[in-house]
């Protein structure tokens, strides 16, 4: 038996939901970034599955761009975390309110 596209989409949905719940529950900004990565990976799995199913290499091209943007997002986000952490010695997402104007 060969896994159909629906299997991949269901797995991606589960992965996306786990990432979203983690993003809502956790307060450590680093772990929240990791949860964002989980959600992006769920989307990547969807892109590749549908691209294979529809015989369109554009799905893989989209994953390529998602990878680049994810790397950029992590770089800037971690720089922000480091900058905030330099002023306060704790690491919860609530302390990011220090970024306010």
């Amino acid at each position: 038996m060969e896994p159909t596209t629906g299997w991949y989409l269901a797995l991606a949905a589960a992965l996306f939901v786990i990432g979203a719940v983690g993003l809502l529950v956790r307060r450590n900004p680093l772990v929240m970034f990791m949860c964002v990565e989980l959600m992006l990976n769920a989307v990547n799995v969807t892109f590749v599955a549908l691209g294979a199913d529809l015989n369109d290499v554009g799905g893989q091209a989209a994953v390529f761009f998602v990878l680049v943007v994810a790397a950029v997002e992590v770089v800037v986000g971690l720089a922000l975390v480091v900058a905030v952490n330099r002023r306060r010695a704790s690491a919860t997402a609530d302390d990011l309110s220090a970024l306010r104007g």
Binding site: L15, I18, G19, G22, N28, L38
Partner: peptide, 18 residues
């Protein structure tokens, strides 16, 4: 994948999450 995802969300230590 799913075990890893649950581990990311549920680990108390950020290193384990990574």
């Amino acid at each position: 994948i799913l075990v890893g995802a649950v581990g990311v969300v549920g680990s108390r230590n950020p290193v384990h999450s990574a």
